[in-house]
Amino acid sequence: MKKTTIIILIMLPIVIALVCLCIGRIGISPGEVIKALTGSEEIKGTVRITIINVRLPRILLGLLCGAGLAVAGCSFQSFFSNPLATPDTMGVAGGASFGAALGLLLGFDMIGVQVLSFLFGAGAVLVTKLAASGRNHGPAVLIISGIMVGSLFSALVSLVKFVADAETQLPAITYWLMGSLGSAGYKNLAMGAPIIIISIIIIFLLRWRMNLLSLSEDELIASGTNVKLLRTLVVICAAAMTSSVISMCGQVGWVGLIVPHMCRMIWGQDNKKLIPASISIGAAFMVIVDTVARSISAAEIPVSILTAIIGAPFFIFILTYRRKSITGTVL
């Protein structure tokens, strides 16, 4: 990557975040935002509280979740050597949602919810991988397996909702499942952020080596790389990021498909470029979509509705027009 590209990729989410800090029910000028962020005394209390306690944690959560979901998407695409593999299509999001919903039902705290969410998310990947294992399957079999695993878990989520107390738990679970960054607070962030950040760092370090996973099994052996370790690290990080995001803000779908593919169109398939680009574009994308979701109407729209409205047609677009150029094979 050229130096200017790197600078643009670093600046993009920062600039977007600053712009989005200004936007909301109360319009705040960029000057005031910067003063509030730097702790200047000239700012009115309400403005400061709006910026520091309401918008900033939410935007930080957006940056983190966007980057996490995008990197998880790239990682699953490498792990399964399938360009349509994402947390959503591999059933991971479904598994992680069920784990989190179960945690909420049992009254676990945030850490417990994340752990349970991770366990079911990682379990879902394994089931999908096993269901689609075998030599002569085409790539479509993997997607079908993933969708089946996902639908199994969505039935289990319904079961959790059915069992949940209609007065107290059900509204909480339902609203959380719809996917929203509205729950953002520093306490939540402090518990979800480390897992996402550590996973992103590990994947970032492995980014070039992940390219090897596109090779055939024999070529992988001939590369002399510790393939088991590589695969394990990639899939654990990807599942951890996905379940951490889902624990914090529900099932925000499709980011792991849209962002990596936007980046592939510009930078090609090399993960060495793709991962940094996805971190940057993913973070910026999520903050923009969330800002639209919270400011387009008087009542906030769940962000997952917007990502799905963009994501599903995008999936069909890739399936129809970009399949050959991305995979070289017909699904």
């Binding site: 055939s216 090609g268 398939q269 995979t327 094979t329």
Partner: peptide, 8 residues
């Protein structure tokens, strides 16, 4: 065999 990924 045919390339399965579109690396350059």
């Amino acid at each position: 065999r045919m390339a399965t990924s579109s690396f350059t």
